[in-house]
Every structure is written in C-alpha cells, then in structure tokens.
Write a protein that binds this DNA or RNA. Structure first.
Lengths: 189, 189
DNA sequence: TCAACAAGAACGAACGTTCTGGCTACCTCG
DNA sequence: CGAGGTAGCCAGAACGTTCGTTCTTGTTGA
C-alpha cells in the first residue's frame, strides 16, 4: 500500500530543494514551484508569506539533513574519532550525481546582504559545522583542534566548489589525501 | 591635467565589475548598470548584444586582472619559487575590504547550465589557475606537483568561500599555515 | 461550520530589449 | 579650408514578457 501522500508544505519544500539547488534561486519562479509541487499559489502563500521564506525553510531543511548525515558518518566510524568518516562523507557527496556545489555557498552568492534572513541561516549552518569538526578533532586527540577544525572547513568548502567546476573524482582523492595528511590520520587501507 | 575620460565600454566594464561582484548578477538590472556607468541603453546594447555578454566580458576582465596579480606576486618572491607569494596574495585578497568571495564561483552559482558561455569563461580561468600553481609547485621541486597544485586550488577555493562567510583573518591564517605545511615551506618569520 | 486546498484570473512592478530623435566629434573629399 | 556625411553617444519613451503577490470562486473533509 502506498504511504500517505506528503502534505502540500512538504511537497513545496521537496520541490524547492530540487529546483533551488539544481537551477539557482532567483532563476526559479514561483510558477515553477507551485506547478511542480502540485499546489496552488494560494496554498503557497498560506505556508510561506513570501518566496524568501521558502528559501530560508529550504536551507534549514538542508541543514537538518546534513546534521543527520554527519551524525551517521561519525557513528559508522565506530571507535575511531569520526574525522575519517566525515572526510569520506564529503568525498562521496561531491561525487554524487547532480552535485552542484554547496547549498549554502550557492545561496550566499545570490543574497549578498549579510544581514538577510537567508544569510543568518547560512551562518548558523556554518557555525554548527565548524564546531562539529573541531569537536571531532579534539576527541581524536589532535594537538591543535581549533586549527584542525578550520582546515577541515577549508578543505570542505574547497572540495564542494571544485567538484562542481573541475574533475569531481580528482577533487575527492585530493580532499581525502590532504585531509589525512594535515590531520595526521593514517592513510586508508 | 586630468587623464582622458574612460570610454563608455570601459565605464560599463568597471561598473559591471563593481556591481556584479558586490550585489550579484541577476539582482543588478540593466537600468543600474547604464545609470551608474553614465551611458544610455542604446550605447550598452551597441557594445554588448545582451546582458549575458557583459557578464562574460566582466569575467574575462577579472581573469586578466588576476593573472597579472599572480604574476606580480611570483615576481615579488624573487629567487623563491613564488608559491609563498601566491599564498600571501590569496590571504591578502580574502581580507580586503568589500571582499565577497570568488568572482567565478559566485557567477557559477547563478549560471547552473554547464555549457553556458559564462561557465566556459569560468572553466578557462580555473584551468589557468590550476596549471599555474602546479607549475610553481614543480619549479619549487615538490615531489608531487600535480597533487600540490590540486591542494592549493582546494585551499584557495575554500579560503575564498570561508573568508566571506566566517572570520576572514582566521581563514587567512589557516590558509597560510596549511599551505606551508603541505608544501614543506618554512613558517613565516 | 470552518479551515485547507484547487483552479485560475488579475494586478502592479520590474525586467531585458528595441526604437525614435537629436547632438557632437571626426573623417573625407571637394 | 570647409561642407557634408558618418558613427558614436545622449535622452527618454516604449514594448512585450515575466515576476511576486493578491483576489475570486468553488470544493472537500474534519
């Protein structure tokens, strides 16, 4: 039996995630969103006062999904610190089909005003990730976890940009090797 | 005596560089461009058949400027390989006032179609930079210049994204330290 | 009965682009 | 030298389209 159909709001969020990520935000009109989500304009504006509110909701949903993915990757690493799992996760992400860079960096390019709600959501996501990898570095016994965390963020951002514009597989290999070198992790089997 | 006034085309390019970079491309209408450049619409469309042609010209002009900046940084390094100078150049760039990330990565976020002329210009710029730092790594005697070049691009892209969204000075320090670690350069004085 | 939704028309603003008309500088050819 | 043409530019109106947002009406299900 089919599961219950997702609510209009969820369909809008799912459509927003697909279209905003693959085609950009300003280039996707409300028309496309409501058509492909199978809802009417009235329904759209009942759930989101304006298009920008959907953008923020889209980023927050993406943030929640990524937090879950990192948690899983860390858990998969078992007794290890989790840093290796996070490196692998980034590498897998950048090589996935339809990959088009970082949801948040891309959105920031379209919202230059640093105090816009969109930018607040971006800043919150980045602050979480920075803290998460710094904690992992500390847990792994790295002598300078703050530095290690910042390097991981640097490599992460660079990989997400490069994998979209250059050769994704080469970027993935470089990321994993450089991450392990810089963090003092052993080479993979 | 004042130098001769720049041509309408040059004023358009200069205005495009300023506005596109600081506010994004789709968010800046042709109205703003012609008003702030002090030209008329007719003049605009005489030099550029469409807005997208100005975007491409803006990216190519930026590309030329960056090539010159890297050349100067390498030359400043004197007898050294030039890698140190390039690292410092990136660090200075990311901390400059009005910095808003990479011209090319930002533009790519607004032009998802990988075969668009804008994306071609972006690819050409990235191919040049990749080759340039790889050459420098080879000249410095790095045992694996291809790997070193790719790491430098990774760090560069990450720094440009991070400096815009996080603490620029911390990003700069992390970039220089990580770059020197990987390249086996001595720590700065 | 009421709130959520479908369907679609409608609105005002903003967009990229084209057009009309007049002014000025420069080149050409007598 | 000087008349006449040509090309580049200014000023601003105009066009057709698309955008984000609102409104109207009718239907469904709790």
């Amino acid at each position: 039996m089919p599961t219950t159909a997702p609510s209009p709001r969820d369909r809008l969020l799912e459509t927003a995630n697909r279209l905003f990520y693959s085609e950009g935000i300003h280039t996707v009109p409300v028309d496309r969103l409501v058509t492909e989500a199978g809802v009417t304009r009235a329904t759209f504006y009942r759930h989101f006062p304006a298009k920008e509110d959907l953008v923020v909701a889209y980023l927050r949903a993406t943030d929640a999904r990524l937090r879950g993915a990192v948690e899983s990757a860390v858990a998969r690493d078992g007794a290890d610190s989790g840093l290796s799992g996070v490196l692998d996760l980034i590498g897998e992400t950048t090589c996935a089909a339809g990959f088009r860079g970082c949801h948040f960096i891309n959105a920031a390019a379209e919202y230059p005003n640093a105090s816009a709600p969109v930018r607040v959501a971006i800043a919150e996501h980045r602050a979480w990730f920075q803290q998460a990898v710094t904690d992992l570095a500390a847990r792994s016994g790295h002598p300078d976890p703050d530095y290690a965390g910042r390097v991981l963020v640097l490599l992460h951002d660079g990989a997400l940009s490069g994998a979209q514009l250059d050769d994704p597989e080469a970027v993935r290999r470089t990321l994993v090797r450089a991450g392990r070198d810089l963090l003092g992790l052993p080479a993979p089997e």
